[in-house]
Amino acid sequence: MTFKLIINGKTLKGETTTEAVDAATAEKVFKQYANDNGLDGEWTYDDATKTFTITE
């Protein structure tokens, strides 16, 4: 399955995708991506669209 991450950061904005077997796996990938890029914010997830959002 394809999951999307929408980034609404103070300095970084955009989106990225990952292929994962489930939402929990995708969340780990996206949280590592956010950590690697210095993002810290509030996370939301929409199961209907398989989309995570981080807002700083």
Rank of each mutant, 00 (worst) to 15 (best):
D46A: 04
T25K: 05
K10G: 09
A26L: 01
N37M: 15
G41Y: 04
A48I: 14
T11E: 08
T55I: 07
D36S: 09
N35T: 14
I7E: 02
A48G: 08
T11M: 10
N8P: 03
Q32H: 08
K28L: 08
E27F: 15
A26Q: 00
L5S: 00
N37K: 14
T17V: 10
Q32R: 10
I54D: 00
N8G: 05
F52D: 00
T2Y: 11
K50T: 04
D40N: 12
T55W: 10
A26F: 01
T17C: 07
K50E: 03
T18D: 02
M1T: 15
A23Y: 12
D46R: 03
A26P: 00
L5W: 03
E56R: 04
N35E: 14
L39F: 11
G38R: 08
L5K: 00
N35L: 12
F3K: 00
L5P: 00
A26I: 01
E27A: 12
F30V: 01
Y33A: 02
G14A: 11
F30W: 02
D40W: 14
G41W: 09
E56N: 06
K4L: 08
W43Y: 02
G41V: 03
T53M: 10
N8M: 13
T55D: 06
A34N: 02
A48H: 13
D46G: 02
A48T: 11
E19R: 08
G38H: 12
K4E: 03
T11C: 10
T16K: 11
D47T: 08
A20L: 03
K13M: 10
K31N: 04
A20I: 02
E19D: 10
L39T: 03
M1H: 14
A24P: 07
A26W: 01
E19H: 09
A23L: 06
G41I: 02
T25N: 09
G9V: 12
T18V: 14
F52R: 00
N35G: 07
T49M: 07
F3C: 01
T44W: 06
D47E: 14
V29F: 15
Q32A: 12
L39H: 05
T11F: 13
G9I: 15
K13G: 07
T25G: 13
M1K: 13
D46F: 04
G9C: 11
E42H: 15
I7C: 05
A23M: 12
G9M: 15
V29L: 14
G9L: 15
G9R: 05
A20H: 03
W43F: 05
G14Y: 14
N37A: 15
Y45D: 00
V29Y: 15
D47F: 08
V21Q: 13
G41S: 02
W43T: 02
K50C: 06
T2F: 13
T18N: 04
A34L: 05
G41N: 01
T53D: 03
L39S: 03
T17K: 09
L5D: 00
Q32L: 08
E15L: 12
Y33Q: 03
L39I: 14
F52I: 01
A48C: 08
K10S: 07
I6K: 06
N37D: 03
Y33L: 06
T17E: 09
F52T: 00
K50Q: 11
T17H: 07
I54Q: 01
N8E: 11
K50H: 12
N37S: 08
T51R: 03
M1Y: 15
W43P: 01
T55R: 05
I6W: 04
K4R: 14
T55S: 08
A48R: 12
T44G: 10
D36N: 09
T53W: 09
I6V: 09
I7F: 15
E42L: 13
E27P: 00
G14F: 13
V29G: 04
K10D: 08
A24W: 10
T53S: 06
T11G: 11
G38W: 06
D22H: 04
E56W: 10
Q32F: 05
T2R: 12
N35F: 15
K13D: 05
I7P: 01
Y45A: 01
